[in-house]
Nucleic acid binder design. Structure first.
Length: 459
DNA sequence: AAACATTCCAACCGCGGAGTA
DNA sequence: CTACTCCGCGGTTGGAATGTT
């Protein structure tokens, strides 16, 4: 409710901090902790408001802040997390533990946003922009769009998984469910959304003319239908969307952990974000690669429901300790999407085979995405742009060090070399829905969100 | 070398949630 | 239930630094 009286009081200094002020603040906090920020300035002998002190501390003086240039891995993390979380800088910052939200925000606004825009990607929606799709530039934009279509594709994957989530929850079976990935194909005459990316899934359903061809059994078309119907009604307020929208609004603190399980083939059935209305969950994960395998759901009202907020978490990273602070809901989302996407080729209803596994665990054959520890700082400097586009598009030959045309690499012309452009751009991507590009893109996200902020080997 | 443009980022502003009396 | 404070967050700004003409 009430707003802080703020710092308009006379006598309080504003503007840049002097070294003396910094020293005072540091000394005080080191000795006493910050305590009440409001009371701090007087105690520390500073003529500043508490807010200003807090800001100075959290954004600059805090000892655990990493300053300086963002690494490629950090860039990737920001972009990918932004795609998932939108402008929730503090949430993003939790995954880049030594960076402040302010710094990330600044970096996004000054660097990454422009870069995405330049690439024809709407930095808000992380989808190819319409103008890029329709501009008459001799097909270049078309290629770009085609190559970027995976961005939209994973939005679709999210939608589908989301829809499944709700559907399953609505079934309210008291038995454990073993959910399976539907196969699907999706086309993307996607429009941009004005929503923040954190709401992309919802808004995408609201606004995007996405056509989804689904073969999931009994899949009512509720998602698309309801969303289109709700267009005039104020976005996501539609009751029919209550579950997915509210659930997947990335309420990080409230979201229950991902549901983990494993089938006999070590293959993923599905991963669905756990939501409060669903109830308790149980499961396990693979010891081998730390990948969530499947999901068990116990409905609310079953014998375990009293415990449905207290899932025991196993860290997916074998090297990490329990109870790390990575974001479950984000992880869930990522997994959900990954599996939905990867599992979308036609053979994936029941028996996923080795392909998924090999692709998921490393993405190491061919396509190359740096998401792990990478000491190659020099290359990082040189490949800043390229690395980014590689991450996004991950063209087939992106190990080629000569592929240094950012725009072109983005459009696969480096890899496709003209003729391959069209094919590489358009044909390889959406048709079967499980291209390497997508997998590696998601793999990278998974790694990012899997890594606990404190333990991350990346940063 | 000067003028101008652009980039960068620390800091500010205002809002809203949480907690509490 | 209301009113209030505190705090954190995201958006924005202003000026220094850097680049370009």
């Amino acid at each position: 409710m009430g707003r802080s009286p703020c710092c308009d009081k006379v006598g309080l200094k504003k503007g840049p901090w002097t070294p003396e002020e910094d020293q005072k603040l540091l000394a005080y906090i080191e000795e006493h902790g910050h305590g009440s920020w409001r009371a701090l300035p007087a105690k520390a002998g500073l003529e500043r408001c508490g807010k200003s002190c807090r800001l100075r501390w959290t954004n600059y003086l805090r000892p655990d802040i990493k300053r300086g240039k963002f690494s490629l891995q950090e860039e990737q993390a920001i972009i990918q997390l932004h795609a998932l979380l939108g402008n929730r800088w503090s949430a993003i910052a939790t995954h880049l533990p030594k960076r402040t939200d302010n710094e990330i925000k600044n970096y996004w606004n000054t660097h990454l946003k422009k870069r995405l825009t330049k690439m024809g990607i709407d930095p808000v929606t992380h989808k190819p922009r319409n103008d890029a799709l329709v501009s008459g530039d001799g097909g270049h934009s078309k290629k770009v769009a085609a190559n970027l279509s995976h961005m939209a594709q994973w939005e679709s994957a999210r939608l589908e998984a989301e829809a499944r989530l709700v559907r399953e929850s609505k079934l309210r079976s008291s038995q454990q469910h073993s959910l399976q990935i539907p196969s699907s194909t999706t086309t993307f005459p996607s429009s941009s959304s004005s929503s923040s990316s954190a709401q992309v899934m919802i808004k995408l359903a609201d606004e995007s003319p996405i056509t989804t061809t689904k073969d999931w059994t009994n899949n009512e078309d509720w998602l698309l239908r309801s969303n289109h119907e709700s267009n005039g009604g104020g976005g996501m307020g539609n009751a029919e969307l209550e579950s997915p929208t509210s659930t997947l609004s990335f309420s990080e603190n409230n979201a229950s952990p991902a549901i983990i399980g494993e089938n006999s083939n070590n293959n993923v059935n599905v991963v669905v974000p756990m939501i409060e209305f669903v109830g308790a969950t149980s499961g396990s994960y693979s010891e081998n690669d730390g990948i969530i395998r499947s999901i068990n759901v116990k409905e609310e009202g079953s014998e375990d429901h009293h415990d449905h907020h207290q899932h025991e978490w196993k860290d997916y990273d074998n090297n990490s300790s329990m109870g790390t602070t990575f974001n479950p809901s984000l992880h869930e989302l990522t997994m959900m999407t990954m599996e939905s996407t990867w599992g979308s080729s036609s053979h994936h209803h029941q028996n996923h085979d080795h392909d998924d596994e090999s692709l998921r665990t490393s993405g190491s054959n061919g396509a190359h995405v740096n998401v792990g520890d990478d000491d190659d700082d020099d290359a990082e400097e040189e490949d800043e742009e390229l690395g980014f586009t590689n991450l996004l598009l991950n063209t087939n030959n992106n190990n080629n060090p000569n592929n240094d045309n950012n725009e072109l690499s983005l459009s696969s012309e480096g890899g496709g070399g003209g003729g391959g452009g069209g094919g590489g751009g358009e044909s390889h991507n959406n048709d079967n829905g499980d291209s390497y590009e997508d997998k590696n893109y998601w793999n990278s996200i998974l790694h990012l969100v899997d890594s606990s902020p404190s333990d991350s080997p990346i940063f």
